[in-house]
């Protein structure tokens, strides 16, 4: 049984009368520990696909089976728990909470676990921030950071709950080459050492080529490269 199985997943949006198939009849198997990259033109449906994989958008039709569970039929409560325990999101859009410091932002996903934030978690948050090179910004607020620094906080945050699936939407969008390489190194080690499965959207073909499987999306249709 594959780790994740997409069965003819379609997501249709309507703008006025116009029907837009953001993702069209997409079927795909993902194995545990794979590193998948997706490239594609703007508007081809990459973010939509990632959102459905992570359970923050529901397919119009089709099923997404994660470890044998069809997440599309989960209740809102179970789906939230699923996201909390198994998914790490790196959003395409800025996504830090403005009222919280860098360190607190990294801890946010743990607020929603039953056990809450523990002392160990604090250490792990600092550790992750070290890994993304922000150990000197623990107490800073998002508005005091550069775009690339904010992006790296979001990267650290996605690892805090030790998820089995990382959904990265252009995670290195506003990073310089050197930092980008460091982040890719971090992804690789998380992927190899902790067996995290990655699905990463990128516009950078060099990065895409480092993945174990590569895909291209065009108008909602996916093709393996």
């Amino acid at each position: 049984m594959p780790f994740i199985k997409l069965e003819s997943v379609t997501k249709t949006y309507f703008i006025e009368e116009q029907k837009i198939d953001a993702v069209k009849n997409l079927s795909l198997d993902i194995k545990r520990g794979e590193f998948i990259s997706i490239v594609g033109h703007s508007g081809s449906g990459k973010t939509t696909l990632l959102s459905m994989l992570g359970g923050i958008a529901n397919p119009t039709s089709g099923a997404i089976i994660h470890n044998g569970v069809n997440i599309c039929s989960l209740t809102d409560e179970s789906l939230s728990e699923h996201r909390c325990q198994k998914i790490g999101f790196m959003f395409q859009f800025s996504s830090l909470l403005q009222m919280l410091t860098v360190k607190e932002n990294v801890l946010v996903p743990l607020l929603f676990k039953t056990e809450g934030v523990t002392t160990d978690d604090l250490d792990r948050a600092v550790d992750l921030l070290k890994k993304v090179g922000l150990e000197d910004k623990l107490k800073a607020f998002p508005s005091q950071l550069s775009g690339g620094q904010q992006r790296r906080v979001a990267i650290a945050r996605s690892f805090i709950n030790d998820p089995e699936l990382i959904l990265a939407d252009e995670p290195t969008g506003d990073l310089d080459e050197e930092t980008e390489a460091e982040m890719m190194g971090l992804f690789d080690s998380m992927n190899k050492e902790r067996n995290m499965t990655f699905v990463m959207v990128t516009h950078n073909s060099d990065l895409a080529n480092r993945a174990s499987r590569r895909f291209r999306m065009t108008n909602g249709i996916i093709k393996e490269l």
């Binding site: 809102d76 409560e77 996201r83 909390c84 999101f89 909470l97 996903p109 929603f112 709950n161």
Partner: peptide
């Protein structure tokens, strides 16, 4: 937007 982010990060309605 913040609430959306928190929901995506695993917050339940009750949170």
């Amino acid at each position: 937007k913040e609430v959306g982010i928190m929901r995506a990060l695993g917050a339940k309605e009750s949170h």
